[in-house]
Design a protein around this nucleic acid. Structure first.
Lengths: 188, 188
DNA sequence: GTCTATATTCGGATAGAC
DNA sequence: GTCTATCCGAATATAGAC
């Protein structure tokens, strides 16, 4: 693996664990085994490194989500597959976590990958819901955009509740609850 | 207002804006107008100060939530009131925000107020749902604990989506979506 | 109780040799 | 491309006078 790649991977892991403010260039060097001079040769500084790491995390998250959302089955099944995917719940979401950081929010290079990821995800799920509605799978009262926002919010909020409780249980309850509510809107 | 109170209020505001890692004792002193020596006279250090601030934020959040949840009306109405309360969505939740911070998670003095707040909130809402179900307002298939987790997760996740989008819209969509899904489980 | 001075470590880099 | 040396300010306190 290239030096850049090792730097990016280490930065991804540290951002996930410790957030942007909590991630120091020195920690990245230690984790990656790359020296200081080398790091500053490949990246202009912390924001540059973090932006590269976030773009890669965003891309990976899209890939993983798409695998569930594009699977065969009904719209409901695919949303269920997305919600029920095996997750390391207590680690939280590598992208969602960044949204709260004021330095990330303030820097367009950092915020853009976060924003685009959730825009894409909500749009993708809204499309599925709309498709299901057209096919007569869901009742006409189910709003695609609102429902997609619920699905994504339940996952992100589930992570928050799980971390607060130091337990995956509230995450799983929220997912079950959301699927239960949605299931009742299917027809036949 | 007492010196302690000014320190606590300033710390609450800074924790909300900048998180635990991003909040320095010096910033607290500047915002509160309290000198260094004075601050260290009243609190042993940053964790002590943050714990006091979090306990107060937790108490305030419970008070505000209870006002909606204890209002007159059906269980659905009270949950709707909670979800639809006017919020400064882009600022996020002063308690939920702390859950992601590893230093908060690691220190029981800091994590406990966060944990207790969400335990209480989920329990309170689950009680309302159970009550509504007993009264015949909701159908028997609605699980109280799961539904409560959805409600709280939608709010917390809504904050994440709103920050990512730099817009309150996804928060509002998620709330509308959740209420729409829940409304269909009412009887008569 | 509050103030100012001092101490130590870390964060986030730049400089210049190899 | 990578290494080591160096720099400056911020974070988080402690010490001791008033």
């Amino acid at each position: 693996m290239s030096t850049q790649d090792r730097l990016i991977e280490s930065t991804q892991a540290l951002l996930w664990e410790r957030g942007y403010v909590g991630t120091s260039p020195k920690a990245v060097q230690q984790r990656s085994g790359v020296g200081q001079g080398s790091m500053y040769h490949h990246f202009t500084g912390k924001p540059d490194l973090a932006a590269a790491a976030l773009r890669r995390s965003a891309e990976q998250l899209r890939g993983v989500a798409e695998a569930d959302l594009a699977a065969p089955g009904t719209a409901y099944d695919r949303i269920a597959a997305y919600l029920l995917r095996d997750r390391d719940v207590l680690r939280g979401c590598p992208i969602g976590r960044m949204a709260q950081d004021p330095e990330v929010a303030a820097d367009p290079l950092l915020r853009t990958p976060v924003q685009e990821t959730f825009d894409w995800l909500r749009g993708r799920i809204a499309g599925l819901v709309a498709e299901g509605r057209t096919a007569g799978e869901f009742d006409p009262g189910v709003d695609p955009a609102d429902t997609a926002a619920v699905v994504v919010a339940v996952v992100q909020g589930g992570y928050v509740l799980a971390r607060a409780a130091d337990s995956a249980e509230p995450f799983e309850q929220a997912v079950r609850g959301a699927l239960g509510l949605l299931a009742a809107h299917r027809r036949a």
